[in-house]
Design a protein around this nucleic acid. Structure first.
Length: 520
DNA sequence: AAGGTAGGCGCC
DNA sequence: AAAGGGCGCCTACCTT
């Protein structure tokens, strides 16, 4: 069924079995390379991939509905395609019932006609926006991101369980029986207890604070940076314990049993899971893998990992968005902060502090002095983030470059802000919106890069990991050069798509490595 | 027993 | 060297 030039996937219609569906998709894809339109990529695409069907482009109704509702200030409304359809028809909006990902047919598959109606409505709403071109790009990038996410879960990141076990055993001792601490952790816990002269559970904040207090040390918290300032024999073993305990509990043997299969780590990505447009993951903690674990991510025999990350992405994004000529000139260099140094008395680190403070609302230390320099030297960039902060403090919405819109402040915030401690709440909100415009646009650039890169990769190379401003491609060794070049092309194209002709450069260094740990 | 919150820390 | 915003996930601890 073709509506308005769009191919609508007949889920639950005349094609009833997944294998038939996959075959039909393959056939149509090969013949027409259409833009598929479906309710939710997470529901539909994993099973297609299982059946060997890949698609080039799609329009994800649920993700698009979410973007549109946010833009329209309708944050509380359900973003599923079914809900969107019900609203169109004036019917009761169904409860949000997330179906488990990987099921090809949602409990109540949407009729093709309903899909087409929601699509038409969304296209109308986009066309009515002040910047429809930008929003169309956002919709396309978000939908492409959903395809990439499903494909990365399908492909999986190479993960050597044997090396992971070796790493853990080396740091913690052999895998303990369930419910026990590994030997090294237990030894450190014993050292902590010995230093206090009594049993203390190093996992218990309350017990630790009490133990330190009895030893004459007052602590506000047991955060490691605070402990580091304390002179006490328990501190060293406690810091070592904390570091290893986290490794054990968050990325230890039990984690591997749950998330690593067949030499692949397959996290579930949540596209647009962060309000700023960054991705989140549900389960597996894929975006918080400790750096020490990178050594267990190893390419298959004869294959290579091409690892690429965008350098200083957020200040470059700010330079391009604000149209600040001076900052854009600096952002035309590979090392933006070095290029800025002359404006800050030749001190690169001062330039960096100024930029970070401007983007995040920092106030500590030398920030205010450096921000004054920034304001004078780069007035447009400074004003851009100041305006975003002011909007937040006043409870207004802000938008990223392509139109992703911040959530409105809560009712609780509105209460707080008019109360005696209102200034603090307002400033917190201002920091959030100040950062939103930069982080959100950086996420859009990364999404565009991902979408373009996906289309440039030669078979059988595949994206296997994405973390905010970093991508990893797994490919046969002889394709490494081609993949590195594809990353460069994709970075340039992402820049052009978002900002057109800009002097700002977005360097993306791509290196082929056998092991992830060798990439930095 | 189950669910929620807080403290803490990993990543960008 | 760090500051800042954003997350997810762990354990401890409290409430129901």
């Amino acid at each position: 069924m073709v509506v308005a030039g769009e191919t609508v996937l007949p889920v639950g219609g005349e094609v009833s079995r997944p294998a038939d569906l996959a075959a039909a998709v393959r056939e149509i894809e090969a013949a027409e390379r259409p833009r598929w339109v479906w309710a939710d990529t997470r529901e539909t695409y994993p099973a297609l991939l299982e059946s060997g069907a890949r698609v080039g482009r799609c329009h994800d109704l649920a993700l698009t509905e979410g973007l549109l509702l946010a833009y329209e200030g309708r944050h509380g409304e359900s973003r599923t395609a079914m809900a969107a359809h019900a609203r169109l028809r004036g019917l009761p909006v169904p409860e949000e019932a997330p179906s488990p990902p990987g099921t090809l047919f949602a409990p109540e598959p949407m009729a093709a006609e309903a899909v087409a109606e929601v699509l038409a409505d969304q296209l109308r709403r986009v066309a009515a926006l002040p910047e429809p071109g930008r929003f169309r790009l956002l919709v396309a990038a978000e939908s492409a991101g959903a395809l990439v996410a499903a494909e990365m879960t399908h492909e999986g990141m190479p993960w050597r369980k044997d090396l992971h076990d070796e790493l853990l055993t080396g740091l913690l001792g052999p895998r303990p029986v369930h419910g026990m601490r590994p030997a090294r952790l237990q030894a450190l816990a014993d050292e902590v207890a010995a230093a206090f002269g009594r049993p203390v559970n190093p996992d218990s904040v309350r017990q630790l604070v009490k133990a330190f207090k009895d030893a004459g040390v007052e602590l506000k918290s047991t955060r490691s940076w605070e402990l580091k300032r304390v002179e006490h024999p328990a501190v060293a073993p406690l810091l070592a314990y904390k570091e290893l305990a986290r490794l054990f509990s968050a990325h230890g043997w039990a984690w591997a049993d749950q998330w690593v299969r067949g030499g692949r780590f397959r996290p579930e990505y949540v596209v647009g899971g962060v309000v700023s447009g960054r991705w989140a993951t549900s389960g597996g903690g894929a975006l918080q893998i400790p750096k020490v674990m990178r050594r267990v991510v190893v390419a298959d025999e004869g294959w290579t990992l091409v690892v690429a990350d965008a350098a200083q992405l957020e200040p470059r994004v700010l330079a391009a968005m604000a149209g600040d000529v001076g900052l854009a000139r600096a952002a035309g260099e590979i090392d933006l902060y070095s290029a800025l140094a002359t404006s800050f008395g030749g001190q690169r680190d001062h330039a960096k502090i100024a930029m970070l403070s401007a983007m995040y609302g920092g106030t500590s230390g030398d920030a205010s002095k450096l921000l004054a320099v920034m304001r004078q030297r780069f007035p447009k960039a400074y004003q851009f983030v100041e305006d975003a902060a002011k909007a937040g403090e006043e409870g207004r919405l802000v938008r990223s470059w392509l139109g992703r819109t911040s959530p409105p402040p809560s009712a609780r915030w509105r209460e707080l802000v008019s109360g005696p401690e209102g200034g603090r709440a307002a400033r917190d909100r201002g920091r959030f919106t100040r950062n939103f415009v930069v982080q959100g646009t950086a996420a859009e650039w990364a999404l565009a890069l991902l979408a373009v890169l996906r289309g440039l990769l030669p078979e059988p190379a595949g994206l296997v990991f994405f973390q905010h401003d970093e991508v990893m491609v797994h490919c046969p060794r002889e394709q490494a050069g081609e993949v590195v070049a594809a990353v460069q092309t994709a970075a340039a194209e992402a820049t052009r798509l978002l900002f057109g002709d800009t002097p700002v450069r977005f360097p993306m260094e791509a290196v082929p490595v056998t092991c992830y740990a060798d990439a930095k």
